[in-house]
């Protein structure tokens, strides 16, 4: 039997700022299996980032159930085997990528030798070896995005949570990142990622969840989702149709 890495049941989340309330999530249910790539799509403001923040224990949902590796996200130990790449790649601009990775590695309590080996491999992986010791304040958006990807892998996580990982990357880097994600899957890692690049989601995901206005409209493999529809339909046209039906 496959172990569930993420179990989310009836998730609700409401932002309250002053007297304004935004219901960002309204009863979201899904689960992610071990070793699966789960793509999370939805229009702007659908609640993808909010869901991710709940998975990481950055936000706490008052209703519903949420478990990561059968543990509560609010327990900081749960995150020991989780890697996270945020939507906005902003890091300490007066540190170098190496220093940043050392800092995060220390927080994870990674052994020093192992950490240095891993940093070398990761910087090669994201093609940043040449600027490894340059202050990040001189970095372009795409370079920051690569740093962001590398830091998400510093603890060799079993679950990788990526919030729009390919935003700001050029086509070559994008392809490369897709390759890395596939490799990670082959190593048995579980990947949960949100994206607006529907062709990409279709390409790499085992299953896809479509979120709209805080509700999951559909969950399934691309084949399942598109199978019911006409031949040759892309995920994009399916997605647009589904969202438009709701408007």
């Amino acid at each position: 039997m496959q172990q569930k890495v993420i179990i989310a049941k009836n998730l609700y989340y409401t932002y309250e700022t002053g007297n304004k309330r935004v219901e960002a999530l309204k009863g979201v249910d899904f689960s992610v299996d071990n070793g699966e790539i789960f793509g999370f799509i939805g229009p702007n403001g659908a609640g993808k980032t909010t869901t991710i923040k709940l998975l990481l224990g950055i936000l706490i949902s008052k209703n519903g159930e949420l478990a990561i590796f059968d543990k509560s996200p609010s327990n900081s130990n749960t995150r020991q085997t989780v890697g996270y790449m945020p939507e906005i790649a902003n890091y300490y601009r007066y540190l170098t990528p190496v220093e940043l990775l050392i800092m995060y590695g220390n927080i994870f309590g990674i052994d020093k030798d192992l950490l240095h080996k891993r940093i070398k491999i990761l910087l090669e992986l994201v093609d940043l070896e040449e600027v490894a010791n340059r202050l990040m304040r001189t970095f372009s958006k795409g370079m920051m995005q690569k740093v962001s990807f590398a830091q998400a892998l510093i603890n060799d996580p079993d679950l990788l949570i990526l919030d729009e990982p390919t935003g700001g990357l050029d086509p070559v880097s994008r392809k490369r990142m897709r390759g890395v994600i596939q490799d990670l899957k082959e190593k048995g890692k579980t990947i949960f990622f949100s994206s607006h690049e529907l062709s990409e989601v279709e390409l790499v995901s085992d299953r896809i969840g479509i979120l709209h206005k805080g509700q999951l409209l559909a969950v399934g493999s691309a084949k399942d989702l598109l199978g019911e529809k006409e031949e040759g339909q892309s995920l994009e046209s399916y997605f647009l149709k589904m969202i438009e039906e709701r408007v």
């Binding site: 950055i58 900081s76 749960t78 995150r79 996270y84 945020p86 995060y104 927080i107 962001s148 949570i161």
Partner: peptide, 17 residues
């Protein structure tokens, strides 16, 4: 403000720490 807090809080670290 700079949102560097999010990757930090995603580490196995309590907010007290």
């Amino acid at each position: 403000e700079s949102k560097t807090i999010y990757p930090l809080l995603a580490k196995p670290l309590s907010r007290h720490m």
